[in-house]
């Protein structure tokens, strides 16, 4: 994967284009009008065009990720909302990639561990508004998800270990991960309606954030 700054978001945009195309197709296959009976039918692009007022050519570009002549899809927020409204699903789900679902799955599987004992609820109940995001970081550390260490130390006999380079890589990775845990936790915590929610959302945020992947 390209590591330069522009390459990074471009790669992400390419993934999102693919994801949107896949999710759109998956939803369309089952989104047809059934007039109340049990059949699951397809919604075709013409139906979607009628419901969303988005041009057929645009829809076909979105469903394929690009046009036949290679112009890449780049839908704006309103387009995404029109699609989501027509298909009756949250706009975010149109952009959820397989990796994103896997991370969520990982977080759900990690929940029993994260919620075991009273560690997390103690922390969240004591946390003030300003430092509740920090709880996500503490939890990630407690679950040994962060930081990563390569404890290998080259001694005199052990040659060629590329120790400095490896240490530097791990530092960079940890710094990116730290930010990922904080930002993901902050976003997840925003949904909390009560203390119980806060614990679970913190755990989800912290674990999803820890699985942040970007090759360096």
């Amino acid at each position: 994967m390209d590591t330069s700054e522009t390459g990074e978001w471009e790669a992400l945009a390419a993934t999102m284009r693919r994801t949107l195309a896949q999710n759109l197709s998956a939803a369309l296959i089952v989104a047809g009008n059934t007039q109340g009976d049990d059949d699951i039918t397809k919604m075709n692009l013409t139906d979607l065009n009628r419901q969303t007022d988005i041009a057929r050519s645009t829809l076909s570009k979105l469903a394929n990720g690009k046009t036949a002549s290679g112009i890449q899809a780049n839908p704006d927020l309103e387009t995404l909302c029109r699609l989501a409204a027509a298909l009756n699903l949250p706009p975010a789900y149109l952009l959820m990639s397989a990796d994103d679902w896997q991370k969520l799955l990982g977080a759900l599987n990690g929940l029993p561990q994260a919620l075991s004992g009273s560690f997390l609820s103690d922390l969240t109940s004591r946390a003030t508004h300003g430092d509740k995001v920090r709880v996500g970081l503490i939890l990630a550390e407690k679950l040994k998800l962060y930081p990563d260490n390569n404890n290998f130390k080259a001694d005199e006999e052990e040659v060629g270990a590329r120790q400095d380079e490896i240490d530097r890589d791990i530092d960079i990775r940890n710094e990116m991960k730290r930010r990922a845990i904080l930002t993901t936790t902050a976003v997840a915590q925003g949904a909390a309606k009560n203390r119980g929610d806060l614990s679970i959302l913190t755990a989800i945020g912290a674990i999803v954030g820890s699985s942040f992947n970007k090759s360096i």
């Binding site: 799955l105 990982g106 990690g110 990775r173 699985s211």
Partner: peptide
């Protein structure tokens, strides 16, 4: 180095 990065590199999300 590969081992310490394996969690993130391979989406090993669960603790």
């Amino acid at each position: 180095w590969a081992i310490t990065g394996i969690w993130t590199a391979f989406d090993l999300a669960s603790p």
